[in-house]
């Protein structure tokens, strides 16, 4: 139940959507783009999102693309997590997706919606950070592509009136060996204590984590520590843990100390996947 009212638009083109935003913004309606729209409802009902106009991007063809284009995979931002997963273009992305919310909710939540979410986990971002994917963003200057590792800093850094149209990933990156582990407080559904995704590229481990801090991240210094084979496995993990880039969350799912304990175990699992149990 939303207690505020809003206008609802469903533009058929990128250009129309961008222009609509500008004009509604000028009218002071504080417009919002939606694709899946689930957060509009769940955060709107507690007034954490309030808007006077909603622009639904689900009818924009570019936002619905889901195909292999040469060496690239293109994912429309308005495709549901379920559809993206079922396509199985990108196994690590599928694995990250299947742990988000629940199956029925994933029929509604979209890839773009998860990447741009207010909810801090945004786990669909992890595989994209690891594969150095590209994001196509629409705005007044047209459709522009940005490397995700530039434009995603804690959250997707969009200017007012911009929206995410597509995710583009190099096919060869999606074929690399991976591990994706979601650890919860208890049982098999719900928010993570942490989700760790790792990719092995030519023996170098790339690591991205959600749920540990208040935003998902890929940290090069942590990766460096994990890959520093001059140290023991235990020391590599300890050093990586010492380089967590922001305060560790302390919330209803778990304490900060416990999250670190879980992270250590998770990193061991990741290293063990590629290097055997080692000395940790």
């Amino acid at each position: 139940m939303l207690s505020f009212d809003f206008e609802y638009y469903k533009p058929a083109s990128i250009d129309e959507a961008v222009q609509l935003f500008q004009s509604l913004d000028r009218q002071g309606k504080n417009p919002s783009y939606i694709s899946g729209g689930t957060e509009l409802i769940t955060l709107g009902r507690v007034n954490k999102i309030v808007t006077g106009a909603v622009i639904d991007i689900k009818a924009i063809p570019e936002c619905l693309v889901l195909e292999k284009q040469g060496t690239q995979l293109v994912f429309g931002a308005a495709q549901s997590l379920t559809v993206v997963r079922e396509k199985q273009f990108f196994p690590l992305l599928s694995k990250a997706i299947v742990e988000i919310a629940d199956h029925t909710a994933r029929n509604k939540i979209t890839l773009g919606g998860n990447i741009c979410a207010n909810i801090i986990y945004r786990e669909a971002v992890l595989p994209l950070l690891l594969t150095d994917s590209t994001l196509a963003v629409a705005g007044l200057n047209g459709l522009i592509q940005y490397p995700i590792n530039d434009i995603f800093q804690q959250t997707l850094q969009l200017d007012r009136g911009e929206f995410l149209v597509q995710v583009i990933t190099h096919k060869q990156e999606t074929e690399l060996p991976f591990v994706c582990l979601k650890k919860r407080r208890q049982w098999d559904v719900g928010y993570p204590l942490l989700t760790a995704a790792a990719l092995n590229k030519n023996g170098q481990i790339k690591l991205a984590i959600s749920g540990l801090c208040s935003f998902p991240f890929r940290d090069k210094r942590m990766e460096y520590s994990l890959n520093n084979r001059s140290l023991s496995m235990k020391a590599r993990i300890e050093e990586a843990v010492s380089r967590i880039p922001a305060p560790v969350l302390n919330d209803v799912h778990g304490s900060a100390e416990y999250r670190v304990f879980v992270l250590e175990n998770t990193l061991q699992e990741i290293l063990a996947e590629w290097e055997g149990a080692g000395d940790a």
């Binding site: 409802i41 769940t42 639904d56 199956h103 029925t104 909710a105 509604k108």
Partner: peptide, 13 residues
């Protein structure tokens, strides 16, 4: 054809 949580969908959608 897909299950949906009708509380997560606007009627206009």
């Amino acid at each position: 054809g897909d299950p949906m949580k009708s509380c997560l969908m606007l009627a206009v959608e």
